[in-house]
Amino acid sequence: MSGSAHKHIVMPDRFRDPYIFENILSMQEPVFSKECPLDMSRIAFMEPYSMISFLLMGRNYLRNRGSKLTLINLPVHIHQYLARMDFFESAVFNIPEVLDTNLMFRRNKSSSRLLEITEIPNKERQSVKVISAVIALFRKRAPLILKYWMNDSVVDYFVTVISELCQNIFEHSLDSGYMAMQTYRSGNENIARLVISDSGIGIIKSFSSRNDIKYTEGSELIELALTTPISSKREFGYGLCQVNNIVEKLKGVIYIRSGESSLTAFYNRKDKNSKYLFQRNGLIRFDGMQISISLSS
C-alpha cells in the first residue's frame, strides 16, 4: 500500500494465476474501505482468470459503493491487453489515462487466439442468445485458440463445456457473469484457459434447499457437484459432472472457487499416481462461483 495519506493503493503483481490472485482478493477490505485509486504500475502480466475476477471485484465495488474504482498507471502492455479483451466495455472502472488509438492491438485474424470478455446475462432468453453467439465465435476461432491441441473432438468438447457452464450462471447464480478464453505462453508452456465466473449466490446458497446432500465444508460440496450428478434445482443434474468428465479426458486442470472454498483437479497428474484433487477452505470470501479450465502443452 502507498504512504499514510492513502492517495492510492499499489496493486502487487499477483495476476499470474488463480492461486496467486488470492493475494489480490485479500486486498478487498482496504480497497473497498478507502476510496482511492488503484495503482497498477507493478502489474507485469495478467491471465484471464485474474482479469475476470478483478472485473467482478470492480463490479462488486460499484454495486456496494455506487461509484467506480479508478485504475491508474496501467502499464501500456497491460492497457493494450485489457482493451483487446474488452475489459473496459463493462464500464466498471474509471480509467483516466486514455490509450492512444495507434497503440491499440489490431483486431485481425492473428490476434484472435481469444474470446473477448462476454457478459452472460442472468435471464434465460437473453442468455441463450449470448451463449449461442459465443459458441459460434468459438467455432470460428478454435483453430487459433486450440492450435496446440487441435482436433475436431477437442472443439466439440469445449462447445459442451462452454454451453454447460454458461447455462449454470443463469440457472443457479441469480446474477450475471462473464466468460473469456485465451491461449497464451507461460515459460515453455502454451496454456489455453477458459474462464466462466459470476458473483452470484455461490454453491452453498444454491444447494441450501437440498437437505439430503451432506457435506462439512464448501470444498466438499464443490467436489460432490463436480463428481456426482447432483443439482440444486432438479432431482439430479448433468452439467458440472459432464464438464469434469471432459476435462479429465483432455487431461486438463479445472479450478473452481466459491465463497471461501476452492477445489482444483489436476487431471494432467492423475496417471502419475500422485494426488490430483486439492481442496481449500477458509479463503477470503468472494461471492459467486469462479471457474477456470486449462489445457497446457
Partner: peptide, 20 residues
Amino acid sequence: ISAISEINIDSVFNSYSNYK
C-alpha cells in the same frame, strides 16, 4: 450422432437411470 453427442447422451441416460 456425433461422438460428443453420444458421450453427452450416454451421460444423461446414466444419470437418469441412477436417480430414477
